[in-house]
Write a protein that binds this DNA or RNA. Structure first.
Lengths: 239, 239
DNA sequence: ATGCTATACTTGTTTAAACAAGTCAATAGG
DNA sequence: CCTATTGACTTGTTTAAACAAGTATAGCAT
């Protein structure tokens, strides 16, 4: 199921993160990598282009593929790629806890449909959750899930991980995720649930998630404590 | 020079943005697109995967390629992809102006090297600029350029567009750009140059730019007025 | 020493083909 | 009427080959 190129990608990624190929070094040539992984050049190139897209390396016409990766000093909470709160927390060695502060069904009217991207009349489940890391309230997640697809949601699932439920029990795979990052002023609700201190702004991530057949299953507004928010991204010109 | 797949990508992108293939519609099958553009399937697939990576469409195994794009209500200033301040301003129909508030050579010491990614001892040019859109000061850009590559910089170039200078006069092509978005408290300097009103936070974009041979030529801290900042992104699982 | 060229590398683009695997509707069999 | 199967579509993965184009070096001619 997982393609061969994914294995090559993982092997090279681990080599790079492990320092086998340090910053500014060149990877072995495509030809050599073909032999190492015994595959066609296109397959190696596909793995390489995945590394390029994620900012690990940059390929230089006529010369080779150079490493751009350097281990980064991470802030406490780090958002990147498609990853769930639980996964991110685990990767950063934090103890995550979730408090469900709203849990009710809802039907998308015209204005909500325009805002969220769900078709008008869609049955939704509205879940608001406060995310705590090491006991500190850092994120207020306001989710809308499509109730006819993400069925039988309970408060217990919301407290654990809805993502795990979607991809595990329901066997759905979230493939595409569109995000928008803005900075917004703190509302009374933000102050009620998050420990903002004297900050008057938050980092807000608005996102839509789509499953493999292209239907949107989630719309989320994620309101982050500014001190614990960082988003990393690599842009490459020409795909 | 520009690959054939880029032309196909542009044609499809324009069709999608122009509403020929609206939200949730399916594109013609790869086979049909091959005939329309008279090329091999791989070439069509490459164009499609570029559309997927940018969130225009999502491909569904066994069914087809479905449009995810919907015209978005944009905030006044929008950062996405690799794009210069000047380009972005033009795309959003704003009159851009730049005020240079600092312009001096600098050599990277150990701590600056660690922070910026330049090798220690690199000769740099430090340029701080205030970006005004329609007369309103919105962004404070603090750039460091590698002086031995981005040569002969002048205040005049800094006031116009350093990017245009780099890619035009110097014939260098910026290929990769790594960015990090955070929210930070406003400093006295921010208040001095930007019209922040009673906001006490800014959106901060820290970025490194690399040219085609893999050397880093730029380190930038871009401090944005929170009301005029938005960043959009599409993440796709599996490349 | 200088400068040119041939050459052997590198990555970039495109074509072609074969097979795997998911979707869907028509159809045959119960 | 319902179910199972077939077949024709779709996208997904991999291999193979040819050529274009950038880079660097060895070596030759000036």
């Amino acid at each position: 199921m997982a393609g061969k190129f994914e294995g090559i990608y993982e092997a090279l990624r681990e080599d790079i993160e492990g320092g086998v190929y340090p910053y500014q070094a060149f990877l072995p040539s495509e030809h050599v990598l073909c032999e190492r992984f015994s595959c066609a050049r296109n397959t190696v190139r596909r793995a390489l282009s995945a590394l390029v897209a994620r900012g690990y390396v940059q390929s230089i016409h006529g010369k080779g593929v150079r490493v751009l990766y350097r281990p980064s000093v991470q802030r406490s909470f780090f958002v990147g790629g498609i990853e769930t709160f639980t996964e991110t927390a685990a990767r950063n060695h934090f103890k995550a806890r979730t408090r469900v502060v709203r849990f009710e069904p809802l039907v998308a009217d015209a204005s909500l449909a325009a805002k969220t991207g769900f078709p008008e009349g869609t049955a939704l489940m509205a879940i608001d959750r406060v995310r705590l890391l090491d006991g500190v309230a850092l994120i207020l997640d306001k989710n809308l899930f499509r109730a006819d697809i993400v069925t039988d949601l309970t408060r217990e699932i919301a407290e654990a991980s809805v993502y795990a439920y979607i991809e595990g029990k329901l066997q759905l795979r979230i493939v595409t995720s569109k995000r928008r990052i803005t900075v917004e002023r703190a509302t009374r609700e933000d102050r009620e649930f998050l420990e903002l201190g004297d900050y008057d702004c938050l980092a807000v991530v608005t996102s839509q998630a789509f499953i493999a057949d292209g239907t949107q299953v989630e719309y989320t507004i994620s309101r982050h404590h500014p001190e614990r928010f960082a988003f990393e991204d690599t842009a490459v010109r020409g795909v």
